[in-house]
Amino acid sequence: MLTGVIEFRIDRHSGVSTYMQIVHQVRQAMRLGLLTSGDRLPSAREVVDATAVNPNTVLKAYRELEREGLVEGRRGLGTFVTKSLATEATAGDDAPLRRELGRWMGSAREGGLVVEDVDALYSAVRDEHYPAEERS
């Protein structure tokens, strides 16, 4: 029996449309290696059972992902991930960059920083290295 590997979390008050939330979460899961080639996305009905969203929206999000070439719908079987976005650097708990960031977080905490401080620092540094116009 095939079951979906991931579950979507829909935040109704985020201001981001359900459709975009689903697209983002699939992409994110693929980057983190939670979804890899061959995995089945939850069916519209499974998403409805879990989150009570409009199944048409789920299907629309899947069509968008299909258009991007990330997933593929197979008639009667479901929607499957066709490629992997995870790299050595992002996937798994022991990826080197992740461990480095972990160490950094550790020292931030020891240094008495609260979560808002960490977020502010993180976004500031991120924006330095990834200027807004380069991001999609």
């Binding site: 009905r45 409805v48 059972d49 009570a52």
Partner: peptide, 14 residues
């Protein structure tokens, strides 16, 4: 509200 929406959306999906 959530349960009711789920029933309606499941109908659409099914």
């Amino acid at each position: 509200r959530e349960e009711t929406l789920r029933i309606i959306m499941a109908e659409v999906a099914d």
